[in-house]
Structures are given as structure tokens and as C-alpha cells.
Amino acid sequence: MLTATNLECVRGGHVLFTDLNFSVKSGELLQIHGPNGSGKTSLLRMLCGLTQPNTGKITWNDSNIRSLGEQYYSSLTYLGHMIGIKDDLTAIENLSISCALAGLEVDNKMALDALQQIGLKGRENLLARVLSQGQRRRVSLARLLLVKTKLWILDEPLTALDVTAIKLIKEKLEWFLAQGGMVILTTHQDIDISAAAIHHLHLN
């Protein structure tokens, strides 16, 4: 369970949010809404432990994520704004490296399968620089098909995706939630994902 208590975020002398409290349990989805610049990405980065909250604390199964460190990171998958795709590597190399960084041994076949599932059949060995924006996004999302983490934090995962890809991701998220996973995501698009419980958090 991920719990946030009394979070406050200050960016450039500006208070983005204060006294933020929420918790996400197994099988639950937390969707964060808010206009541009309302601190959605800042909040997600905080939840990943990339930035320190100005006040308040974030706990994972009742221990502070700061003290958990790598133990927390091994149960977390974060897909940020910047998708971490290298132009000079092929789709499959990108996927294998991002999995390796996440501490996951992936053989060629698993990676190929994941890319095909996400709709990149026949593009596995193309350099990422020749892929379109949506295809690059798909490469980064392919990691979700392979990881075995409990908590997914997704920052605008649906940007640049077409309708079929959005449907695919939606199904994948529903499957993951049904398995007892936790998802925190921001999106401007309306998607109806069925989950045990869906929380909405509005920042403004």
C-alpha cells in the first residue's frame, strides 16, 4: 500500500499543492487530474522518490520510501514524460536495456513477443530515430508487458497513441489491476478503466 500524508510541493517559490493525503491499495487505480502546471508530474516524481516533498511523507507498506530505497524501486515501474528511448538503438535494444535497468532479465524472444503484442511487428529492428512518436511511446510501454512490479506510476501514458493502442493499454491496465496491482496515472483523456476502486485526485 502506498500512502501519502500531508504532501506539499513548492516549485520556483510557488506552492503547487499542500496538505495532500491519499492512499492506494492493491487493485486500486488513482487518476490524477489537473490543468497544465498544476503539479501532476511533480507529484509523480515525488512518489517515485526522485524529488523530496517539501513537507509530508510517502510510505510504502508503512515504511518511508526514502529509507526503503532500492527495495521500493524494485516494486515500482515509472514511465515518465520523457520516455527514455535512445535514437541510436533499435526498438528491441531499447526495450531490453530498459528492462535490464529495471532489474529484469529478458531474452530476445520475450522482448520480441512484447513488441509484437504492442503492435510493432516488423519494426523490432528499426532504429528508434525512424519510428514515429506514437511508435516510440509504444516501445516504452512494451516494458509494462514484461515487468513484474506491484506499482505502476504512469505520466501521460496515452500521449500520441492511436485508438487501438489506447484500447490495448486499457486492457493491460485492467488485467494488472485485477491481479492486485496498483496504478497511479495522469491523463487528459477520459478512459473508463474498470477496477476495484478508482480514486480521483484533482489538483488546481
Binding site: R45, C48, L50, I83
Partner: peptide, 14 residues
Amino acid sequence: MDGTLEQLLISPSP
């Protein structure tokens, strides 16, 4: 710039 560094920082390896 491309976000790989964030992934490095939250990688389970030291």
C-alpha cells in the same frame, strides 16, 4: 534529456 537518467535513479540496482 531523454529520461533514461530517471530510470537509472529508480533502478533496483545500486
